[in-house]
Design a protein around this nucleic acid. Structure first.
Lengths: 191, 191
DNA sequence: AAAAAAACTTGACGGGGATCAAGAAAATGT
DNA sequence: ACATTTTCTTGATCCCCGTCAAGTTTTTTT
């Protein structure tokens, strides 16, 4: 099994141990590749998400274009699963866009193939449910984070938790992710 | 079948049609009751959520106490499912509190009983997964709502979408839910 | 290695909405 | 029905942070 394949399986296994049959079926379908250059879009606003991606290498930002600005919802890098979840779930045009910040290599599985596995492999559905639950709880915790801390506290807490982000991601996107202007982030760092 | 029972089933059926056996098994376990008076807590901060509730009548607010204030995360009334999801999912102490705003009648199922159904009744798990997906997408959409609209726009959009809330819920909680001070909400209504 | 583009910094300014405060209105309970 | 508590309103003040602008540094491209 290749390294990226065991990484994908371990993401699922961390929630629910998959049977050998499920592992084989999942990997068989998780077989497509994309290669993006810097600034390429993986998903554009308005597009319907039909795939679930695994990031082999590189870095991406997830954001929603709104009026004349862009609000950063998150990032993805090595060994993350990524897609435009609302569009993936509802099969409606995506509000999110996902863009490569560096050249990025991805593997993906088609949504229809993925969902088709649920019938024969109950454990895949259970693991996926639990991964989605994690996403929901994460969203809720982040909401609290943004509401109860000052810009400076938000910066410090991200710095404590994920210092590597500051090496990979341009500050202006981090500022947007932390819900402040690039100028405010710049001034905070002076302190 | 009693009215509240068919309501619960229809919530699940809206996502995934349940088999007769699944319906029977689910309702058999969804058999406990609670009755709350105004201001009683269904869930307190720090408590671990072990139940999933259905609101028969009355109204509730979900909020997180933080520092010296309370931030309203949502409301629940007739025919809603409700629990402290992060605590229910992770079995960790709840950051949320849930409080009755009027006298409220609820039915509930124990988490352990609910999860136990998933083994024999795959369709219950699938319906539940889809309901959780709906919650996740809802959270994401609300985030956009809060970030891209002014206080006045947020008020008007809630007024358009859910005018009945203003008849049931005290304004100060609605203000908190809309992420503004009660004074700001009061001033907006003058316009 | 040089040119161009993108990202970051720093200063000046302004405004939207929070906070504080005090009075009015409404809801609750006995 | 009355007293008490809670909620809502309205005014005055203030400050945090966003915006605008101009210069600097870093990164990217060729």
């Amino acid at each position: 099994m290749e390294d990226w394949q065991s990484k994908i399986i371990s993401i699922f296994n961390s929630k629910q141990k998959l049977s050998d049959a499920a592992v084989a079926a999942l990997l068989k379908k998780w077989s497509h590749s994309v290669q993006l250059k810097r600034n390429d879009f993986l998903v554009s606003k308005g597009q319907i998400e039909t795939n679930l991606y695994y990031v082999m290498s590189g870095s991406m930002r997830i954001f929603y274009p709104v009026k004349d600005e862009e609000i950063c919802a998150g990032f993805a890098y090595d060994h993350n699963l990524i897609c435009s979840y609302p569009s993936f779930i509802r099969q409606q045009p995506s509000d999110y866009a996902i863009q490569a910040l560096t050249s990025t290599a991805l593997k993906f599985i088609r949504r229809s193939d993925f969902y088709a596995l649920f019938g024969d492999h109950h454990d895949v559905e259970t693991a996926w449910r639990m991964l989605e639950e994690e996403a929901l709880v994460g969203k809720i915790e982040r909401e609290v984070e943004m509401l109860t801390f000052t810009p400076e506290e938000r910066y410090k807490r991200l710095m404590d938790r994920s210092p590597h982000i500051f090496q990979i991601i341009p500050r202006k996107y981090i500022a947007s992710y932390l819900r402040m202007s690039p100028e405010t982030l710049s001034r905070i760092k002076l302190v």
